[in-house]
């Protein structure tokens, strides 16, 4: 693993706007050809990180390499390798989809024929051929994002930054975007994405960094992060209080919710475990009304990691709310 070349590295990355510290010693290492998701609530510093890595904003301190170059010292070498799709669709609203792509081809000096060829190919790949001659105002949110991403890909970047690529998209468009990202990675491109959707990180990323207060509070694969927090359990609900009482006595180590007649049994939800649980209820002749399995998801991880450090209950609640959206 340690021999894999890194597409992006950052050590001790710092950035403050006035007194407001946005990044406070961020450490990153993204292996080539992988998807890295930077996960965090609004205001955690995700966009600032992308802006610094993509040469838009200068860092106050720390060392960065993107594609082997320092964005501060050699921005052109970095820009030649990256593609950036920002939070807000960066398309030219006064040009048609096709003209937008040709503009990018011209700025990449692809030449007229190659530019047209790539434009046609990308329109096809992103399902925009029918809308090619239309202005972006006629596009849906998902189409605009696809056009935006297609523009990013005109120059064949090796490293792609996606800043909240699916924020504001409906579920269908979100899944379409995920599929596109998966195809990109299959071609060996490195993707650095930020998201506030835990599911998105879980779906796409090889590694996930949880950003809070300007530094990573946890990092790993989705599975590794989930292992950080307990919380897997089976929940049994009973229709009548008598059955509930008996089950509570028969099953050891349970958490009780008397009001809801619900028992919570820690466990990983495997079939073997469920069978033994049901066998025990059967043996006692107790009938459960319903059974559900809860595995810890990234939400649990996120709350556990980002709330511990918070000292302000109001801010805490805001973080939870953001994360739930």
């Amino acid at each position: 693993m340690t021999t894999t070349p890194h597409a992006i590295t950052a050590t001790g990355l710092r950035k403050a706007y006035g007194d407001h510290v946005v990044l406070d010693g961020l450490e990153l290492a993204v292996a080539e050809g992988t998807v890295y998701a930077l996960l965090g609530p609004n205001g955690a510093g995700k966009t600032t990180t992308v802006q610094i890595l993509s040469t838009l904003v200068a860092a106050d301190g720390g060392h960065i390499t993107v594609g082997g170059h320092d964005p501060a010292r050699d921005p052109r070498a970095v820009r030649a390798q990256i593609g950036v799709t920002g939070q807000f669709a960066a398309v030219d609203a006064k040009l048609t989809g096709e003209e937008n792509l040709i503009l990018m081809a011209d700025l990449h000096h692809l030449g007229r024929q190659e530019g047209r060829r790539r434009t046609a190919g990308l329109l096809e790949q992103f399902g925009l051929t029918d809308a090619a001659k239309k202005l972006p105002e006629a596009y849906s949110g998902g189409m605009r994002r696809r056009l935006d991403l297609a523009m990013t890909l005109v120059g064949d970047p090796r490293i792609i930054f996606l800043d909240e690529p699916t924020t504001g998209l409906d579920p269908r468009s979100r899944h379409a975007m995920w599929q596109i990202v998966r195809e990109l990675v299959a071609d060996g491109v490195t993707v650095f994405l930020t998201t506030q959707y835990l599911e998105e990180a879980d779906q796409l990323a090889d590694r996930i960094g949880v950003l809070d207060g300007g530094r990573l509070v946890a990092e790993g694969t989705a599975e590794e992060l989930k292992r950080l927090v307990p919380g897997g359990h089976v929940r049994l609900r009973f229709a009548d209080p008598a059955a509930y009482e008996r089950a509570a006595r028969a099953l050891h180590g349970t958490a009780l919710d008397d009001e809801g007649l619900t028992l919570q049994i820690p466990g990983d939800g495997s079939a073997r475990e469920l069978k033994s649980l049901l066998d025990r209820l059967e043996a006692e002749a107790i009938e459960a009304e319903s059974l559900s399995v809860h595995t810890p998801d990234l939400d649990d991880v996120f709350f556990a990691l980002t709330t511990e450090r918070s000292h302000n209950p109001a801010a805490d609640a805001a973080v939870r709310k953001e994360a739930l959206r």
Binding site: S54, T55, L56, R76, R79, A80, I82, G83, V84, G86, F88, A89, A90, V91, D92, A93, M104, L107, H108, M151, T152, G155
Partner: peptide
């Protein structure tokens, strides 16, 4: 409108 950030991250002449 955000398009300028795209231009800024392209390897093109700053003055263009």
């Amino acid at each position: 409108e955000g398009i300028v950030n795209r231009f800024r991250t392209l390897s093109i002449s700053r003055a263009a």
